[in-house]
Simulated scan of single mutants.
Amino acid sequence: MNIVELVNNKSLKAMEKRIQIIEILLEDNLSLQELITICDSLKDKQIAIILEAIEEITNKKMKQLDPAYIDFVEKYILSDNNSCKREASRIVGNLAEQYPNKLDSVIQCLIKNTTDDSTVVRWGSAYALSRIIVLTEYANTDLYDQISDICEKEQNNGVKNQYVKALKKAVKIRK
């Protein structure tokens, strides 16, 4: 079964679909360009399942993904779908340490989502930004001050704690 058939299969639950998509992506039989083409033909809810699979691969470090995956997920950070926004942000957070030189344009998308009405979207952005700010390349930049300001304004403790922990780590790098 291919990815399009999987995401359209109504007899499978989302978790089952995600597991099978992970297997397909780990097999290396699908190029990133093919994946992009597939996603261009799908609805946001279906894309979110694919992004969840990619997030799990990056989170558990099941496979070294190409840095072009950051470019691929960037457009989903500003999607209309909150699940796409959240998962794309988490993927960036998981890949940040491996590809610090690929983050400049995606950082602006993440910052934009820090004011989103949805807590899960703000949390996803906090997750990614918190992993970026502790990188040597970013700890001593204006991004530190931006994240400090965002942290002060954030009302949700779960989101705020992401920033607080990262800012404490970044302070040590800044010295």
Rank of each mutant, 00 (worst) to 15 (best):
I3W: 11
L6D: 14
L12S: 06
L12E: 08
E16N: 13
L26Y: 12
D28T: 13
L35H: 11
I36Y: 11
T37H: 07
T37R: 12
C39A: 13
D40S: 08
D44F: 09
Q46R: 10
Q46C: 08
A48N: 04
I49Y: 06
I49L: 15
L51E: 05
E55K: 10
E56G: 00
E56F: 04
E56I: 06
M62C: 05
M62E: 13
K63F: 10
L65M: 03
D71P: 02
V73S: 06
E74R: 14
K75P: 05
Y76K: 11
Y76I: 10
D80T: 11
D80R: 11
N81E: 07
S83F: 12
S83H: 12
C84S: 11
K85W: 02
A88R: 04
A88S: 10
V92N: 01
L95A: 00
A96L: 05
N101S: 12
D104I: 11
V106H: 07
V106R: 08
I111H: 08
K112W: 00
K112A: 06
K112H: 04
T114K: 08
T114N: 11
D116W: 02
S118D: 11
V120A: 05
V120C: 10
R122T: 01
W123T: 01
G124H: 05
A128F: 02
I132R: 05
T141I: 12
Y144A: 02
K153H: 00
E154A: 01
Q155C: 04
V159I: 07
V164G: 13
K165P: 07
K168G: 11
K175S: 15
